[in-house]
Design a binder for these strands. Structure first.
Lengths: 345, 345
DNA sequence: TTTAGCACTCAATAAAGGAGAGTGCTAACA
DNA sequence: TGTTAGCACTCTCCTTTATTGAGTGCTAAA
């Protein structure tokens, strides 16, 4: 559907994209000829550039400026021209060292991962918690003062959700333990969906023995079901400021506002979790009106059949795609390794 | 020690501070005379301003500009001239509505509180988790797959810390439950310090009965002790961007970098937790070289004898102190109310 | 098809010239 | 003695005007 370019055009497009990524300045025919000299004169390059512009791969900010890749240009570059750039040994070492969890806590691991990722790339990073079919691992009711109990829901991902609930008078810690047992026996290994549609009645029946606490148990399940299954960790927002495209404060403000809204981030990430491996979305491909001229390189990694996560780098469209893709690959590998260790798989 | 000003000087200083807070422009004698007219001419005001400058309450960005309050000027204003500005009924209502926790989870409540606080003030907000003598409420070991267990430490503040630990072969869920019981019996109601110095040996003795799991239990206690007791929630960073002093991107970058470092925030907040009630620290009073021209209005609220928290607003020195103090007061009241409800006191 | 040459365009930078806000000082006034 | 009007002076900010230079498109020759 999209016609392939001939070899020289490809070389020139690649040179322009890469030069622009490095310098953030529109690049002219002369620069290309001098810096990447293909043995042709600037004039020839100029002709080719005019062609590329007509085809929609380049745009000119104004007459008499050099050219800048269009979204289509980046797309072509990403699809056909770039090759992921392996991080060097020192960087790899750095990644390994940072991801090794000081604490065996999933949240902290993901946070660390994001931090190192954004340190290496100089862009913002996003990471979902491990999600998937949210399998319950354990449910625990713990006493918490008079008339209160703490509900703890432990998911197979190693994440813990907790909430305080009021409980009726006269419920003993022993009762709480009993309820925990019943719930555990029934719920462990199931997913939210399973519960919603099949198990609820069964539990209801079983617990009627403890009719005194029946209402509580039902409420409890409701709580467990209402657990918001996905968290998004973000980091490295300050690194994105070093990018010249964010010298503009207004744009920055919208971006920061969005990054503080977890829902929004969630949407951004889940919409990319379709395919395995690295996925790159450029500008409007993110399908979001609010953020202009942003790209996202993301990868969804699979830990087990029913547990996966998404790791993403968010930056300007003028992003160092090749480098970011390489780093992301390396970081994801280390993360998978570490998670396997922490979760004991 | 610091001499008090005569009444007219005070009025003029107050007018200058308030005008500058509102407009962010250096204010001149004429503006004062016109806008706040004290029945004297600009020339008189000019003389007074010259005095105030000599005394160090005002500074001039350059000759032929108006004057701007110095840190000392703000300090005098805050100490002697301003009166906290009660938020209007609509705002109060808004606060109440937002702080009412959708979920009964301390973290979420604090997050919400920060959000509304920064929405109303247009500055960044910080909130510590509830801290104090970190009393253990419950400790729970939950099974988590083969060779793993989840340690859950529930503090009296309603916060939960969790971590995965490897456990030796052959430990049954029943064993875990036993250990939990022993630990609970011993630790509940104690603080980290208590444990460190007195209880450790006792537990050791008791658990020797389960000598099979002794090492595990000891490790476990270590884990429990290593819980980092303080978290800092922050929010509203994007709102601070609307302040003209942050049009400068470099300054912004240092600020954002700092705000992403939890340790730093912790230090900032704890150093102010000395006195009860609202505390205002201006510029260098924050004793931090990295952040220039920032002020912090904070309040430490006490929930029980041994549980308190800190809520703070961070903005430019040109902060609307009177308004912020009023809002902070109102928000803290609502927060205390809500926390009491959630924690069931 | 490629290249050299040339006129043309346009942003960015610098220099120059007000305009305006504000001050300090002096002298007069109550 | 405190207050005020008047006035010269300062300095930023804005606008206008040149100037520069990178880069283009087009044409004609190789």
């Amino acid at each position: 559907m999209i016609p392939l370019l001939d070899e020289r055009k490809e070389k020139i497009l690649a040179a322009i994209v890469e030069d622009f990524i490095n310098t953030a300045e529109p690049v002219g025919s002369r620069t290309i000829a001098r810096r990447y000299g293909f043995g042709v004169s600037p004039a020839t390059i100029r002709n080719e550039m005019a062609d590329l512009e007509e085809m929609g791969y380049l745009v000119q900010p104004h007459t008499s400026a050099g050219r800048v890749p269009s979204e289509r240009g980046y797309r072509y570059y990403v699809d056909h021209l770039m090759e992921p750039q392996e991080p060097d040994e020192g960087e790899k070492e750095l990644v390994r060292k940072h991801i090794q969890a000081k604490s065996r806590e999933i949240g902290a691991v993901l946070q660390q991962t994001g931090a190192i990722l954004s340190q290496l790339t100089s862009y913002a990073t996003l990471a979902t918690s491990l999600c998937g079919r949210s399998v319950y691992r354990h449910i625990q009711l713990a006493p918490f003062g008079p008339g209160q109990a703490m509900v703890l829901v432990i998911l197979a991902s190693g994440e813990v959700f907790h909430r305080l609930i009021p409980i009726p008078e006269g419920i003993t810690p022993y009762d709480l333990e009993s309820i925990s047992s019943v719930l555990n026996a029934k719920l462990r290994g199931l997913t939210v969906k399973d519960i919603k549609f099949t198990i609820l009645k069964e539990i209801y029946a079983e617990l009627s023995y403890y009719h005194r606490v029946l209402d509580l148990a039902v409420e409890l399940i409701q709580e467990a079901l209402s657990v918001k299954e996905e968290r998004v960790y973000h980091g490295g927002i300050h690194s994105i400021l070093s990018q010249p495209e964010f010298k503009n404060v207004e744009r920055l403000q919208t971006l920061l506002g969005l990054l503080e809204q977890e829902d929004f981030l969630c949407g951004l990430l889940t919409s990319s979790s379709g395919q395995e491996g690295i996925s790159i979305r450029i500008g409007h491909e993110l399908q979001n009106k609010e953020i202009r001229e942003l790209s996202m390189v993301s990868t969804s990694y699979r830990l087990t059949d029913d547990m996966y996560g998404v790791l993403a780098v968010l930056g300007p469209t003028r992003m160092h795609y090749a480098r970011v893709a390489g780093i992301l690959k390396c970081v994801t590998d280390s993360l998978l390794e570490e998670l396997a260790k922490v979760l004991g798989r």
